[in-house]
Amino acid sequence: MTLTDEQVSTDLTSRFRVSDRMYPYLLITPAMIVVGFFALYPLGYAVYLSLRHADLTTAMGIGEFLGLENYHFVLNDEFFWSAVRKTLIFSIGAVAIELTLGMAIALLLNGMRFLKGIARSLIILPIAVSPLAVGLIWRYMYHADFGIFNAIVSTFGIPEQNWLGDPGLAMASIIAFDVWQWTPFVALIFLAGLQSVPSQVYEAGAIDGASFWQSFRYISVPMLSRAIIFVSLLRFIDAVRLYDSVFALTAGGPGTATEVLTFYIYRLGLRFFRVDLASTMSILFLYATIVIAGLALRRIMIQQSELAE
């Protein structure tokens, strides 16, 4: 083995140089193995299943290679598209309400002169609770006969509703639960953003005669743009994956009124054991999530490079 001049000149440290270069990789190896094996291998397996006929209820189990036939089937399955539509209705509805309400709450909290800490502590409590456990409590609260929501609305003269049993209302009821749980998170992030805006900026605006709305529109919103994009992205990615709240509140019903994509995949794969079709949908779902998240990430990067200029 011949050494170059450069290597010879650093001969004393060369043994350490190599391990210096390897050291960072050595540290990340366990994490890469865990994520690689238990995240990538299952994904690869899902791709494999999506290309075959696989019905675990039959003796054959995982069967013949079908090429893209499952994809062709799923993309022409009206229940699949209906589940996609419900997922989007839920996600867009919930995230839009959470962003609006969250901003309003953040503005309310930010202007508080006393008791701000306590108010914030109490408002963020829903973030921590198990969506499944509290979702089941909401199911009780939504109950048409002895639920507290009907008692509340009837004191305001509104007729009692079958919140979870009415196909036209069930999705809105799930959205309301999600809004209850996640608006505090959105408010918390916007509040942190508002607090990081130097007060001089608002004072300068006030001297120039800016109204509340103007200082919100032209100071707060631009200063919070990073937080707004971040929280929309994070909430949207979480919202399309919702499962626990649907399980707790409606189990997809009444009929299929709230059968969102995750629930349809679950039912197909783990109730009817058509793991081929369930895997195909999972892959399409994952692909869509990555594309949406990737586009959003690119927007953030473009925006940041514009800010840097």
Binding site: L43, R241, G269, S282, F285, L286, I290
Partner: peptide, 13 residues
């Protein structure tokens, strides 16, 4: 960002 449902069936197997 990966939906848990996408890997749950392979993990089950």
């Amino acid at each position: 960002m990966m939906p848990a449902i996408a890997v749950i069936i392979p993990l089950f197997v």
